[in-house]
Amino acid sequence: MESLYLLIPLSVLIAAIIGGLFWWAGRSGQFDDLEGPGHRILQDDDKPVGDDE
C-alpha cells in the first residue's frame, strides 16, 4: 500500500505533463485542420505515378 505514496503524486505529475503536451500541440497548430490530415493519409502517393496501369 505504501507504493500509493509514490503512485498518486506520479499520476498527478503525468497528468500535468500530458496537459502540457496538449497545450504545446494546440499552440503549434496541431488542431487547426482537423479534417484534412484524415483525407490526406488516404491519398498519399504510394502508387506509381502514371495514368495507365
Partner: peptide, 18 residues
C-alpha cells in the same frame, strides 16, 4: 480563440478523467 477553446477542453477533460 479556437486554439484556446481547444486547450481549455483538453485541460478539463484530462483533469476530469484523473
Amino acid at each position: 480563440e479556437r486554439r484556446r477553446a481547444m486547450t481549455r477542453l483538453w485541460v478539463a477533460g484530462l483533469s476530469m478523467m484523473q
